[in-house]
């Protein structure tokens, strides 16, 4: 066993896998840092109640002294921000992430005159993958946030209002923590999925841990035909998801002091 770990081949493999795993970790953390706040913006977008046509249509009907028909009721209820956001949610959640990665990396170069907007080489692949992951995960998170915000009973908001709080104060002082408590379990699921989803970056040859392991099968690191490094990547994923699970479990426990 010790001999196995001391052999030059194992040393080379482990060092390559470590390097690949650093890329995996970078992708994981950049995605979280981008998607967690962006998801909140998207959640507010899908809950946006702006109905620009409600007033003019009502005014028009009032002037003509007409009862609203089916079409005018539809116009009154039309909320463009919410509608567009929900359409995007449907598209992003309804198509595979691997397709989104490929589309974001290749399509701009194919349709834009000046060629691809991404930097050359590994940096370009990393940037494109990060963009794809942040968008994809932000839309998933947004639906979890929406459920969390809408799950807080309306009585909480009303209690804040009658106590003279502003909407901002109600969100930050009353709703937010209750929402966080509600969303920690579903967010934990998504974050653990993200640990493994990072491997999809392999689709555009980002040099993450799976890519690094595969290279020992194909031979582009001077060694070819060995398959155990690919299996060994499971150890990295398992160890990392164990740490993530533990940290999220701790957060859940820290919020145990109150019940919603």
């Amino acid at each position: 066993m010790i001999e196995f770990f001391q052999s030059p081949v194992t040393q080379t493999v482990l060092s390559a896998l470590n390097q690949g795993f650093i890329v995996t970790l970078e992708l994981f953390f950049i995605t979280l840092i981008g998607a967690i706040p962006l998801g909140l913006v998207i959640a507010f977008g899908s809950m946006n109640r702006w109905a620009p046509l409600a007033r003019p249509v009502r005014w028009f009907l009032h002037r003509r002294q007409r009862e609203p028909g089916r079409f005018s009721r539809w116009l009154i209820a039309l909320r463009p921000v919410s509608l567009i956001t929900r359409l995007l949610v449907w598209i992003v959640r309804g198509t595979p992430l691997i397709l989104q990665i490929i589309a974001i990396y290749y399509v701009p170069g194919l349709v834009m005159d000046g060629g691809t907007p991404w930097p050359r080489g590994e940096a370009g692949r990393m940037t494109a993958v990060c963009v794809a992951f942040i968008i994809n995960y932000a839309f998933y998170f947004s639906e979890i946030y929406r459920g969390g915000i809408q799950g807080v009973p309306s009585g909480q908001q009303e209690a804040g209002l009658v106590l003279g709080m502003t909407k901002r104060q109600i969100f930050f002082k009353v709703t937010l923590l209750q929402m966080v408590k509600r969303i920690v379990p579903p967010m934990s699921n998504e974050i653990i999925t993200l640990v493994k989803d990072t491997s999809l970056a392999r689709a555009i040859a980002l040099q993450e841990v799976i890519w690094a392991a595969e290279s020992f099968m194909k031979g582009n690191q001077g060694i070819s035909g060995i398959w155990w490094p690919l299996m060994f990547t499971a150890v990295y994923y398992l160890a990392f998801s164990a740490i993530v699970t533990m940290l999220l479990g701790r957060l859940e426990k820290r919020l145990d002091y109150f019940q919603v």
């Binding site: 009585g155 909480q156 009303e158 209690a159 009658v162 009353v174 209750q178 408590k181 109150f258 919603v260």
Partner: peptide, 13 residues
């Protein structure tokens, strides 16, 4: 005005 609700609506946290 102050309002006391039927279902209390205390802030649980």
């Amino acid at each position: 005005f102050g309002l006391v609700f039927q279902s209390f609506n205390l802030f649980p946290q």
